[in-house]
């Protein structure tokens, strides 16, 4: 008892001391506190309040009663989701597109960076890189517009098909092509931008490693396989982990701008569905439950893959 009281008293005095120090710190550097105040308000209002607002996933949220006045329903919304046909389809679409992106889109900038690295003519390298970075700065509305125009019935892709005697295809209206178009347009827009970080990592590699390899008789190909790639692995791992944490977040803008009602069955993803059912139709609680589900999956995947990565001492934490 006595000891406990002592510890408590100690803790109390420590807290006292800390708050005294804080008051002093605020008095002395009040300008710094004033500076950061708008930032703190911003993070509270637009980051943390919405985060806490996710509790409506466990409510039957009614807009006029607010969070305080709406009834709690436990896991009802989540149970409802699991038995809900639409959700199954949306989840399957999201997971499949995410998987295709991981398989095809994730490695693309690594390969491209390695190819860039082999270019010896500096001016050619710069020009090619400039062209590759450009699409990153276009919005998905514009890129979506470009894709629709190029693949339209009178578009250039069908013009080329006709030159070879094939019948035109309405690519954007057919389910079979949707996911391929998503992956290819994603690569087109972001592959160049994605190389920047790998090129920076390649530049950081010690040149003496290559010199030693040359003495050992390694050609350029072997140098790439045995030096460049292994030394890129930490960068690749970190980017992979950051990617996997957002696994189910495909990006609203891209899909929204490529999707038509004809391709909903293969292309409607969580974010576009949440927008229609939540923002437009007002099913707030159900769609928040979907959002939470998405975050939990992302976090679980991040956790699992981080554990795997840590075994080779390359985890994020």
């Amino acid at each position: 008892m006595e000891e406990q009281a002592k510890v408590l008293a100690q803790n109390k005095s420590r807290k006292q001391l800390l708050s005294n120090r804080l008051v002093k710190n605020i008095r002395k550097h009040w300008v710094l506190y004033l500076m950061i105040l708008p930032g703190i308000i911003y993070y509270i209002v637009f980051k943390y309040i919405p985060l806490l607002g996710s509790v409506i996933a466990f409510q039957d949220y009614q807009i006029f009663n607010g969070i305080a006045g709406s009834p709690w329903v436990g896991l009802d919304n989540f149970i409802h989701l699991l038995n809900y046909e639409d959700f199954h389809e949306v989840l399957r679409n999201t997971a499949l597109i995410a998987l295709y992106q991981l398989i095809f889109q994730f490695p693309a900038p690594i390969i491209l960076a390695l190819l860039f690295n082999e270019v010896r003519i500096l001016i050619l390298k710069k020009t090619v890189q400039s062209l590759f970075y450009l699409p990153h700065f276009l919005s998905w509305v514009v890129v979506g517009g470009i894709v629709f125009e190029l693949l339209a019935n009178q578009g250039i892709v069908n013009a080329i098909r006709e030159m070879f005697g094939y019948a035109p295809i309405l690519f954007m209206q057919e389910e079979a092509y949707f996911r391929t178009i998503v992956v290819i347009s994603g690569i087109w827009k972001e592959v160049g931008w994605g190389t920047i970080i790998y090129l920076a990592a390649i530049t950081a590699i010690n040149p003496s490693l290559y010199e030693a390899a040359v003495i050992d008789g390694a050609n350029r190909f072997k140098q790439t396989i045995y030096i460049t790639l292994p030394l890129l692995l930490p960068t690749i791992t970190v980017l992979f982990l950051l990617n996997i944490g957002n696994f189910l977040e495909l990006g609203f803008d891209q899909i929204f701008n490529l999707l038509t009602p004809m391709t909903y069955s293969v292309g409607d993803i969580i974010e576009t569905y949440v927008y229609r059912a939540g923002v437009l139709q007002g099913q707030y609680s159900l769609t928040t439950a979907i959002g939470l589900f998405q975050s939990v999956i992302g976090f679980a995947l991040l956790w699992i893959f981080n554990r795997l990565a840590r075994k080779s001492e390359q985890g994020l934490w």
């Binding site: 120090r21 804080l22 710190n25 002395k28 550097h29 710094l32 506190y33 950061i36 930032g39 703190i40 993070y43 209002v45 637009f46 980051k47 943390y48 309040i49 919405p50 985060l51 806490l52 607002g53 996710s54 409506i56 944490g245 977040e249 609203f252 974010e271 949440v274 927008y275 939540g278 923002v279 707030y284 769609t287 928040t288 979907i290 959002g291 939470l292 998405q294 975050s295 976090f299």
Partner: peptide, 29 residues
């Protein structure tokens, strides 16, 4: 010399990982 530097930094960086879902964000705005 800014005493709350570390906790505030952590709170802000955490929002890069824990993103609010679309609907609560929409309702807040």
């Amino acid at each position: 010399e800014f005493m709350l530097r570390k906790p505030i930094m952590l709170i802000m960086v955490l929002t890069m990982i824990f993103n609010a879902p679309m609907i609560p964000f929409f309702l807040t705005v």
